[in-house]
């Protein structure tokens, strides 16, 4: 890889869109070229700046009301059934999947897919059992909160999935997880760690970061949240 290639690929690298081999090539070039290293740092700073400063323009309330009215009116006609099916299918893929699961798994007395989607407060339990799933899970959680700030979200970690909730844990780039977890925690996301896993892997509970709470069994917790509290389940 040369400087030209790096210039072309550095953004995809920062966006986690490069495959492993290309990433390794790119990192090797970064190691030997100080100019590219400087450029990489510069672009990383730009990415951070964008993430920190870019404004999200939420829809004004009157617009939302207008659209809701239009949609309700539209739903009153013959296409209503199809429309509702479409609406369920087009909700965030996460929600659709979870709603489908809820529909299949939960008793009939619980809401069907479109009702779950239409609920004002979604309840979602994310199950993380692998350390590779953490980045995706945290991104999904943040996305969901962006769309539904009121969503109740619980993240339950067991097996290898607990690692990111241990003190000093870092992602593959060396970025500590704790700040990201703290930010989500502040926004109301609950993190729960399976004590069975800690015991099995001989990890002392003092290693768990204070943002996370211990539960006796991760699986039992997931099951409880679904059956007793009406949470939809999401496994990555």
């Amino acid at each position: 890889m040369n400087c030209q290639d790096l210039q072309r690929l550095v953004h995809a690298y920062l966006d986690y869109e490069l495959d492993l081999m290309t990433s390794l090539d790119l990192e090797a070039h970064l190691n030997e070229c100080s100019a590219c290293r400087a450029r990489h740092a510069e672009m990383r700073a730009l990415r951070d700046l964008e993430a920190r400063q870019l404004r999200f323009h939420a829809a004004p309330a009157p617009l939302k009301a207008r659209i809701a009215r239009n949609m309700r009116a539209a739903c009153g006609n013959d296409d209503a059934r199809r429309w509702r099916a479409w609406r369920a299918a087009t909700a965030v893929s996460v929600l659709a999947l979870a709603a489908l699961l809820a529909w299949v798994v939960l008793p009939r007395t619980l809401p069907g897919p479109h009702q779950v989607v239409a609920q004002s407060q979604e309840k979602m339990v994310y199950h993380i059992a692998n350390s590779e799933d953490v980045a995706t899970a945290l991104r999904n959680v943040a996305n969901l909160l962006e769309i539904s700030p009121d969503a109740r979200i619980v993240v339950v970690a067991n097996n290898q999935g607990v690692d990111f909730l241990l003190r000093g844990a870092r992602d593959r780039d060396g970025t500590p997880y704790e700040p990201a977890v703290s930010r989500l925690k502040v926004r109301g996301v609950d993190f729960r760690v399976c004590n069975n896993t800690l015991a099995r892997r001989r990890i002392d509970s003092s290693q768990v970061i204070p943002e996370a709470k211990l539960v006796p069994s991760g699986i039992a917790e997931i099951s409880r949240l679904q059956t007793r509290e009406g949470y939809a389940y999401m496994k990555l």
Binding site: H57, P60, I67, A91, E146, S148
Partner: peptide, 15 residues
């Protein structure tokens, strides 16, 4: 559907 209104508006605003 309604959850997408914010995302839709945000993209539209930026365009």
């Amino acid at each position: 559907m309604m959850p997408h209104v914010d995302a839709a508006y945000n993209l539209a605003w930026w365009l």
